[in-house]
């Protein structure tokens, strides 16, 4: 029951937001004081072009973990409508060129996973704890399994 409802909620969110991963957990303090470690962001991937000031989640080639930062520069091409984007963390001193792939100056549309539209504090700590202390995850799964077995009515 718990598993299926979780799956339904996840797939439902995917459908509504149009993003492959509709929820992300903030892992670093680079957007403080806006977002702290452990906060949850709801993403939305619409057809609207990206503009400065928006907070986007992007993937960089060669990095596994997506990054959540603010767009500070946008250049939109006259003929092709392709865009070049530069991002920066609110709490970082410089822009993100050092985080991009070697020699990469701009992000393009295909790097962007979605833009942050909503915010829920603290809840992400659950997943952070589970990934960093796997033992707690196994204990929790074990306890839930036990619950399922014992709570037959």
């Amino acid at each position: 029951m718990i598993v299926t409802s979780a799956l339904i909620i996840w797939k439902g969110l995917m459908y509504v937001t149009g993003s492959e991963s509709p929820v992300v957990v903030v892992l670093s303090g680079s957007m403080e004081p806006g977002f702290k470690r452990g906060d949850i962001l709801f993403l939305h991937m619409s057809k609207d072009p990206i503009r400065t000031g928006e907070i986007v989640v992007f993937n960089v080639d060669g990095r596994e973990i997506p990054i959540v930062h603010r767009v500070i520069k946008v250049h939109e091409r006259q003929d092709t409508r392709e865009i070049d984007i530069l991002t920066k963390g609110d709490n970082n001193f410089g822009d993100d060129r050092l985080l991009y792939a070697h020699g990469q100056l701009w992000l393009q549309q295909h790097h962007i996973m979605g833009r942050a539209v909503g915010f829920l504090p603290y809840v992400g700590w659950v997943t952070i704890i589970m990934t960093e202390k796997p033992i707690i995850k196994y204990l929790l799964i074990g306890a839930l399994g036990l619950l399922v077995i014992t709570s037959k009515e």
Partner: peptide, 14 residues
Amino acid sequence: PKNSLNQISLWDHI
């Protein structure tokens, strides 16, 4: 002529 839109942040504040 090259870009239909250029948006460049100059200064920000929280």
